[in-house]
Amino acid sequence: MSALPQIFADDLRIGQTFSGEPRVIGDEQFADFARMTGDDHPIHYDDAYAKKTRYGKRLAHGLLVTSMTALGATAMSHQIEDAMVAFVEHGMRFLKPVFVGDTVKSEFEVASIARKEGRDKALVRFNVRLVNGRGETVLEGFHVYLLALRPPAAGPSHAA
């Protein structure tokens, strides 16, 4: 399998969208998160939501839901994350809970590209959404990455 080409800020355009394949959130994600924070951590459970689902428990907002953006991401978004010089900021709002057994799909849109004058880098903001299998947005927010600009092509050499 060949390596994917390097992604630069110049390769993206405002309004460009890409999305991941729908993924089912299984018990393994819940168990992984439980191991990270301790099985009895109260963030794992919400009695009111538990009564609404046959699984009897919900996945936490916050860290786990944010990590689901990577789980559903496209090859292109993985390339962007591999290419970033720095992760500048992010903001997320969690609109609905994510249950074990839910299907989620990630959606990304290039919101802005701010070239830094006199520098070889640009700030790229991506709007991010996670949508469940019922079409409801469960997470919305943004990530801002600092990405390199494409280096100028070397000019033709002139032999004397």
Rank of each mutant, 00 (worst) to 15 (best):
Asp120Gln: 13
Asp47Leu: 14
Gly26Pro: 02
Arg23Ala: 12
Leu4Tyr: 11
Phe142Lys: 07
Pro42Val: 01
Thr74Tyr: 05
Phe126Ile: 07
Ala9Leu: 01
Ala114His: 14
Leu123Lys: 08
Val124Ser: 11
Ala153Pro: 03
Asp27His: 06
Ser157Leu: 14
Gly26Glu: 12
Ala50Gln: 04
Ser67Arg: 09
His78Ile: 07
Ala86Cys: 06
Arg58Glu: 02
Val144Phe: 00
Phe8Thr: 01
Lys116Pro: 02
Arg13Tyr: 14
Met36Asp: 00
Ala160Lys: 14
Ala75Phe: 05
Phe94Glu: 02
Val144Trp: 00
Phe87Pro: 03
Phe94Asn: 01
Ser67Phe: 02
Ala83Asp: 08
Met84Arg: 15
Leu64Gly: 11
Lys96Ser: 14
Asn127Trp: 02
Gly133Phe: 02
Gly15Asn: 01
Ala31Val: 12
Ala111Trp: 07
Ser157Asn: 10
Ala83Gln: 08
Leu59Pro: 00
Lys121Asp: 07
Glu109Cys: 15
Met92Ser: 09
Ser19Val: 03
Gly135Ala: 06
Asp40Trp: 03
Val128Lys: 06
Leu4Pro: 10
His78Pro: 00
Thr103Pro: 08
Pro151Ser: 05
Arg134Ser: 12
Gly15Lys: 02
Met92Arg: 07
Tyr145Glu: 11
Leu63Cys: 14
Tyr49Cys: 10
Asp102Tyr: 06
Ala83His: 11
Leu71Ile: 07
Ile113Phe: 05
Ser157Asp: 13
Gly101Cys: 08
Phe126Lys: 04
His78Gly: 06
Pro22Asn: 10
Lys96Asn: 13
Glu117Arg: 15
Val128Glu: 08
Met84Pro: 07
Tyr49Trp: 15
Thr137Ser: 12
Thr103Arg: 10
Ala153Ser: 11
Ala73Gln: 14
Phe142Leu: 12
Asp46Pro: 03
Leu63Pro: 12
His78Ala: 07
Phe18Arg: 05
Val144Glu: 09
Gln29Leu: 15
Phe8Lys: 00
Gln16Gly: 11
Ala48Ile: 13
His41Gly: 06
Phe108Ile: 04
Ile80Lys: 09
Pro42Ile: 01
Asp102Leu: 06
Ala50Thr: 05
Gly91Val: 07
